[in-house]
């Protein structure tokens, strides 16, 4: 669809403008929106979702998808809790175990997608149920692990100098790391190539299977890390942790301009897309608006940005 006329702005510009509009509106309507406290608080609360979105971006760039990340977060949380409480591991080991669990879950997806060449949507739809089911089976659904040591809780609830939450540098590191990987490393180029045309990439000598495997593995690790962050922030490990977060991550990635068919997209876009959603939810609540409105507007923003973007030629390859 090529129409003459004004060229549409890039997705990143559009999202940045949207973010500024949100900031301006909520500074007026939101109580305490434009305060340092709120900005720092947002970093604390948004960290887990941000990690998942940033890790999902490479998967989608390479033409894949992962719907199991929320469930994997839940399973990793439960593993963390059980390792610490029942197996008696010290918490740093249990946390490492949770990350390992995330990696293992990512590996399951990765092997099915990269080695068995199964469709990633179906695979992760299956593991969406499977991981959540395992988390419920491990705890019979009813068992909640709480009472973690203060040192562990301070990871999620404590603050560094100047009231900066521990999550802020973590999120910044994840942002920087994924940016380097996607935009400055061979990996990113090859993910894109696979997303555009897996067959073409294969002929060009790209290790397609290995790159796909790495993307899914990375997403799994991110789910494990997000589990540690969430358990330490909330202070409990339970089988339903992270329910629905896969959709938040997918929404952020797509909003950020990454094509679901693969090949196109940027880390900056993903992060801005996620920020637009997080600020929307935060700003509306500070403006005393109900949670349902945030849900509705999330849908509206997603559709609106897509429709505006459609002027640039649509999302289909």
């Amino acid at each position: 669809m090529r129409r003459p006329g004004i060229p549409a702005p890039s997705r990143e510009t559009l999202l940045a403008a949207l973010l500024i509009v949100e900031g301006a509106v909520f500074s007026v309507t939101g109580h305490g929106f434009a305060s340092l406290d709120n900005v720092l608080g947002l970093a604390r609360l948004a960290c887990e979702g941000g990690l998942l979105a940033l890790a999902l971006a490479p998967v989608v760039l390479a033409g894949g998808i992962d719907l199991s990340l929320g469930s994997l977060l839940g399973l990793s949380s439960v593993v963390l809790g059980l390792l610490w409480r029942d197996a008696g591991w010290p918490w740093p080991w249990a946390a490492a175990g949770a990350v390992a669990c995330g990696a293992l879950g990512g590996l399951v997806n990765a092997v099915a997608v990269a080695r068995l060449r199964a469709n990633p949507l179906i695979v992760t739809l299956g593991t969406l149920s499977l991981f959540r089911g395992l988390a419920e089976a491990l705890t019979r659904g009813v068992d909640t692990v709480t009472g973690f040591p203060a040192a562990f809780l301070s990871l999620g609830q404590g603050a560094l100098a100047g009231g900066v939450p521990v999550q802020a540098p973590l999120l910044a590191a994840a942002l920087a790391g994924s940016w380097l990987l996607v935009h400055r490393h061979r990996c990113g180029r090859e993910w894109r190539a696979i997303g555009f045309s897996a067959e073409g990439a294969l002929h060009a000598g790209v290790p397609v299977g290995r790159r796909r495997l790495q993307a899914h593995l990375l997403a799994g690790v991110a789910a494990g890390v997000a589990a540690v962050v969430q358990v330490s922030r909330v202070g409990q490990a339970k089988a339903d942790a992270g329910t629905g977060m896969e959709l938040l991550a997918v929404t952020a990635v797509v909003l950020g301009g990454t094509h679901l068919s693969g090949g196109q997209g940027s880390i900056a876009g993903t992060f801005l897309g996620f920020a637009v959603l997080a600020v929307l939810r935060n700003g509306l609540q500070l403006s005393d608006q109900p949670a349902e409105l945030a849900g509705i507007l999330t849908g509206v923003v997603l559709l609106g940005v897509l429709v505006l973007g459609a002027r640039r030629g649509g999302q289909r390859g």
């Binding site: 797509v254 679901l260 349902e292 509705i296 849908g299 997603l302 897509l306 459609a310 999302q315």
Partner: peptide, 19 residues
């Protein structure tokens, strides 16, 4: 508009359910 159906309906899912 040639938008991916998965994403479009992710949006309309949220709008319908929350409304």
């Amino acid at each position: 508009l040639r938008l991916p159906g998965l994403v479009v309906t992710l949006g309309t899912l949220a709008i319908g359910r929350e409304a």
